[in-house]
Design a protein around this nucleic acid. Structure first.
Length: 463
RNA sequence: UCCCCGAUAGCUCAAUCGGUAGAGCGAGCGGCUGUUAACCGCUAGGUUCUAGGUUCGAGUCCUAGUCGGGGAGCCA
């Protein structure tokens, strides 16, 4: 007999079927009338399979005391209509085999609610809980949907490098990558000679695949990257990770408006897919994690995102009667509280802010004719804030070089990036979406450390 | 990195003015039960985050540190 998955049995299993299941015990309830209920979970879905094990079942006597929360077991038996409430079918076990024990005294996961802070300390066991199992399934559905969205539109999936020697892409502090013997170098005080290092120059982990993606956008056409990204910022918030996953589409012949349209369709399509594919997990999040979760999803799916120029956003904020801790000032970046006001209170739906002051944006964004703003866009969503940052790229060589100078960057370091404007330059656009922030948005989870299996943050890389 | 708050049983928390360390849940044992957040009784379980200091006496006050939470900055 081959192993069935619990999700399949609960959905399609018919009374009378002989089946085998394997998984981990969530809880056991004994009846002194000589049988036990075992709630078995194998991670395939939120729900457990209730298995009724009579005392005369093979393996019962010898093992039932060790069939505790967390233990792994294999069960064979017959599916039956369940007389009890809470499940359509259950298993009447014919055999019980204990695969691995879990000492009840020391097993950290109890039959009770645990705080997310505590579960973070046992990240190797937290996927066995309802919440983290659901997050894993939803995150998977999101990732698959992301690929499907782009593949359906003929985008090429491009693998951009993890290790880079472009030392300043204007996107934050970088993790250095080296094979130099740091212990030895610390003992003899000397200048570091990076020509002796593995790549012959200083190298780091990537903070973005955008510049490389532009190479492919201007050759093979629409493309996207989807991979890990590293920022060595000492940021300690519920929205930042040192290692996170980013999706970066890059499209030739797209202007900013096209970019905004793609961003909206992208988010809406992925959310629609998740609602369709993970209904039970989403019910759980809506019930236990964030009661407004489903309403927020519906709202995002059903409405066009608001498109709002930066200058008009400033006006709205200035005209509002709300007292902000930090005053709104044209020419400066908006504070989190301002962004939250716009998306959570004023519009109550996603907002795409665009055409920001050039002084607060990176060199590669396309300059507007007003010489004050650039074709940048940020997609803001309720509760999570900025989920997408993107722009139309500067395709005019002279303007790009001038902007590099303005930003104190050495054009020599970006010779190949400038070449793209030197030979067959075209208007193009792209954006970056933080995967974990999207998972946060969909699940309602408050802390980004809980929507990635193994969070990396300052002072934290245990698992 | 900055501001505020916190760290006490396996987990979540309480402990008045500085005076003998407490509950619920979980666990063990027993009872009851087609149960499903099961229920009832009993039992065990503590270097009160770390290092100093004040005091006759510190979980409680002071200093420094570590880690966590909320907010801010950086951003996705």
């Amino acid at each position: 007999m081959s192993r069935s998955k619990v999700s399949d049995l609960l959905k399609n299993g018919q009374p009378g079927e002989q089946v085998e299941v394997r998984g981990w015990v969530r809880t056991r309830r004994d009846s002194k009338h000589g049988f036990s209920f075992i709630e078995l979970n194998d991670g395939s879905c939120m729900a457990n399979l209730q298995c009724v094990v009579d005392a005369d079942v093979e393996g019962y006597e010898a093992t039932i005391k060790d069939v505790t929360t967390g233990a792994s077991v294999a069960l064979t038996g017959e599916l039956k209509e369940s007389p009890g409430k809470g499940q359509r079918v259950e298993m009447q076990a014919g055999s019980l085999k204990l695969l691995g024990t879990a000492d009840a005294q020391s097993y950290p996961l109890q039959k009770k609610r645990h705080s997310f802070e505590f579960l973070r300390e046992i990240a190797h066991l937290r996927p066995r809980t309802n919440t983290f199992g659901a997050i894993a399934r939803v995150r998977n559905a999101i990732s698959a949907s992301i690929h499907r969205f782009f593949q359906d539109r003929g985008f090429l999936y491009i693998n951009t490098p993890i290790i880079t020697t472009s030392d300043c892409e204007g996107a934050g502090e970088m993790f250095q990558v080296t094979t130099l013997d740091l212990v030895k170098l610390a003992q003899i005080q000397t200048e570091i000679d990076f020509s002796q290092d593995f790549f012959g120059k200083a190298a780091s982990l990537t903070v973005s695949g955008q510049l490389e993606a532009e190479i492919f956008a201007t050759s093979v056409g629409d493309c996207y990257t989807f991979g890990p990204t590293f920022r060595a910022e000492n940021s300690n918030t519920a929205r930042h990770l040192a290692e996170f996953w980013m999706v970066e589409p890059e499209m030739p012949f797209y202007e900013l408006e096209d970019n905004m349209t793609l961003a909206q369709e992208f988010i809406q399509t992925v959310i629609r897919d998740v609602l369709e594919q993970c209904p039970e997990d989403m019910d759980f999040f809506n019930l236990r994690i964030d009661k407004t979760c489903m309403d927020t999803m519906r709202n995002i799916i059903d409405n066009d995102f608001i498109r709002l120029p930066y200058t008009e956003a400033v006006k709205i904020l200035e005209d509002s009667s709300t007292e902000f801790e930090y005053p709104v000032e044209c020419g400066r970046d908006l504070q989190s509280e301002h962004e939250r006001f716009l998306t959570e209170q004023h519009f109550k739906q996603p907002v795409i802010l665009h055409d920001y002051p050039r002084t607060i944006k990176p060199f590669y964004m396309r300059c507007n004719d007003d010489e004050k703003t650039v074709r940048a866009m940020d997609v803001l969503v309720p509760r999570v804030g900025e989920i997408i940052g993107g722009s139309q790229r500067e395709e005019r060589l002279d303007v790009l070089l001038a902007r590099m100078e303005e930003c104190d960057l050495d054009p020599k370091e970006y010779w190949w990036y400038a070449d793209l404007r030197r030979y067959g330059s075209v208007p193009h656009s792209g954006f970056g979406l933080g995967l974990e922030r999207l998972v946060q948005l969909v699940t309602g989870m408050q802390n980004i450390r809980d929507v990635i299996p193994f969070p990396r943050t300052p002072k934290n890389a245990e698992f």
